[in-house]
Amino acid sequence: MAVSIEAKNLTKDFVITKKEPGLKGAFKSLIHSEKSILHAVNNISFSIETGQIVGYIGPNGAGKSTTIKMMSGILQPTSGEVTIGGLSPFKERKKVVRNLGVVFGQRTQLYWDLRLGESFELLRRIYEIDDDTYHKNLTVLNDILNIQEIINTPVRQLSLGQRMRGDLAAAILHSPPVIFLDEPTIGLDVDVKYCVRQFIKDINEQYHTTIILTTHDLGDIEKLCDRIIIINHGEIIHDCSLETLMNNFAPDRQLVVDLYKEPENSVAINNVKIIKQEGARLWIEYNKKETGTGDIIESIAAKYPIRDISIEESKIEDVIRKIYAKGEIQN
């Protein structure tokens, strides 16, 4: 499959001026200030194929937005390079951004005092979208995002969810083959969140759009992403599918077993690791690859009659938190 986005040893350094506290410090830094270099993005490489949805995640300040900004031509890399469709977004900004749709969840791209439709009208003029494409795209957008309902409302009167729908629509009006979404679901209620996810899925399926998505909502990742790239302290620490990540970091799963009768003393069964026992309920932890769930149930049932069972998978949140925390220790 064709490669859509490629980063090679991409690095972005920021010079940070250290300021001492207080008035004295302020004067001191006027004359002489200590400078240090922050590697916001440090030597990262990846390549993303056409039509992939990639979740780009990491804790706050990990370098996500800096990467997005380099990919969209806003920032110049300190070293290394990134290309979109073979072109450098920094050197050929106008050419590259013509094929790019970008949404910053925290900041709207729409005109505050105008009706939503007028922002679209201006974008149509800027990108020179022909009538057919424009109306076709608007119809598709209307189906998914219900744009018609808000198209005549001034942007400042839109709720956060409505505004996000407007922003998403504005970002793909010119049918870009590549879309960057920087926290598109931030602050949205479940309903709109669902709508946004559906939109991302639909666009990807219909147009085979390549999508990079940063988010702190792991539900987005779970529902949408074929692949996740985790960045921390400017470095990529994992780049794989969600399934691989879960298998590697959370191979264990929990089985909760309710017995008919509270056992008189603590339960012990060969090859079954019981981590907790409370009344008639047992918690069992086991590696899902090594041990079959049925085998465990069988071993327990041989000694104690079972009333009910439930299986709890590890939560993505826990896994991701574990990964972030590991990053902190290493640094």
Partner: peptide, 13 residues
């Protein structure tokens, strides 16, 4: 306030 970013995302000077 980063409005400049918005200008840079458009295929215009």
């Amino acid at each position: 306030y980063g409005e400049l970013d918005r200008y840079m995302l458009r295929p215009l000077g």
